[in-house]
């Protein structure tokens, strides 16, 4: 079991940028893998070739800009692949953040002239836009929520979203700008750091508790505040100790960012650096995929489960 401490020790800036590109490669690979399973034989062969190219692009270890450009070119080929349903979690997140007025589906579109989502560059459109591989990354969904608010005319929600999503939105904005506007990305990164809750300052430490659970590979849909069991207390009072409180979507995503910058990003870059070697390269790539997939899956599932938990709590069904 991994150890975890609740201090903000992010990776250096350059590592964060590189991890961003490598993480995108892993998500693109996963998308291709799943699309191939639903594809015709010809499409599946194309997917196989593209997956090899994704891996070779990472193994060639170019600069972040070159890697992004290569991945963007490969990403365009997804237009020839079957359409996949969105990962679980995103619809619930949008309903959660945008309220009952949000009644549309998220439309996922590859937009060649707008490489990656950037609020400053994406014009108002009747749908929310997110590149396909990016849709696999729940950490970027705060941006989708803001785009959704803009696109659906729920502009009154935008300030509320900025407030609610805090650090999670700032980090997503930074990542969206890593390649195209590095100075702006630095600004958002610093804003994210400032907006992180600091448990040692007596502020709510929920995202830090959730990040510690992520480090143990556990679902982060809720947290326990029950304290110690008193064996002398009545049995129902003892049982109440293990009651979970539902986590808010923003806390789940902030925990994801904390864990990404404090742990996953460095591990990912380290594994990618060894990809050039012939021996064990396949194993390294599998471990990179497992690292990214497991975090994404835990976050997606946590968002869904937390939404159900909050539903029953709000309706008074669980005391």
């Amino acid at each position: 079991m991994q150890t975890w401490d609740t201090t903000w020790k992010p990776v250096p800036w350059d590592t964060a940028r590189r991890a961003r590109a490598i993480g995108l490669a892993c998500r693109l690979d996963r998308h291709l893998e799943e699309a191939a399973a639903a594809a015709t034989r010809a499409e599946a062969r194309l997917a196989g070739t593209l997956r090899q190219e994704v891996r070779q692009a990472v193994a060639a270890s170019p600069g972040v800009e070159e890697l992004f450009a290569k991945l963007a070119a490969l990403h365009e080929q997804l237009a020839y692949m079957p359409r996949l349903p969105l990962p679980a979690g995103i619809a619930g997140l949008l309903r959660d953040l945008l309220g009952p007025a949000w009644d549309g589906d998220v439309v996922v579109a590859g937009v060649p002239e707008l490489p990656w989502p950037s609020l400053e560059r994406v014009p108002v459109r009747p749908v929310a836009l997110i590149p396909l591989a990016e849709a696999r990354n729940p950490l970027m969904w705060p941006l989708v929520a803001v785009q959704g608010a803009v696109a659906s005319g729920l502009l009154s929600r935008r300030d509320a979203l900025d407030e609610a999503l805090g650090a999670a939105l700032a980090f997503a904005r930074a990542e969206a700008l890593f390649v195209h506007d590095e100075p702006a990305a630095r600004g958002w990164w610093q804003a994210g750091e400032r907006r992180l809750p600091r448990p040692q300052n007596g502020v709510d430490g929920t995202p830090w508790e959730l990040a510690a659970m992520l480090a143990s590979g556990i679902l982060v849909s809720g947290y326990r505040r029950g304290g110690q069991v008193d064996p002398e207390a009545p049995i129902y009072q003892q049982l109440a100790v293990v009651r979970d409180e539902p986590a808010q979507a923003a806390d789940i995503l902030t925990a994801g960012w904390i864990y990404w910058y404090n742990r996953t990003a460095a591990q990912l870059v380290e594994l990618a650096d060894g990809l050039r070697a012939q021996d064990g390269a396949g194993d390294r790539w599998s471990r990179m995929r497992a690292l990214v997939d497991s975090l994404d899956d835990l976050l997606c599932r946590s968002l869904d489960v937390a939404a159900i938990h909050r539903f029953y709590a709000a309706e008074g069904a669980i005391g």
């Binding site: 079991m1 143990s216 556990i218 679902l219 849909s221 809720g222 129902y236 049982l239 109440a240 100790v241 293990v242 009651r243 979970d244 539902p246 489960v305 937390a306 938990h309 029953y312 709590a313 069904a317 669980i318 005391g319």
Partner: peptide, 17 residues
């Protein structure tokens, strides 16, 4: 942690036990 049983989330332990 090696001995701990994890079942999460527990929405209403008094109903679930």
């Amino acid at each position: 942690p090696e001995k701990r049983l994890v079942v999460t989330p527990l929405l209403a332990p008094e109903q679930q036990f």
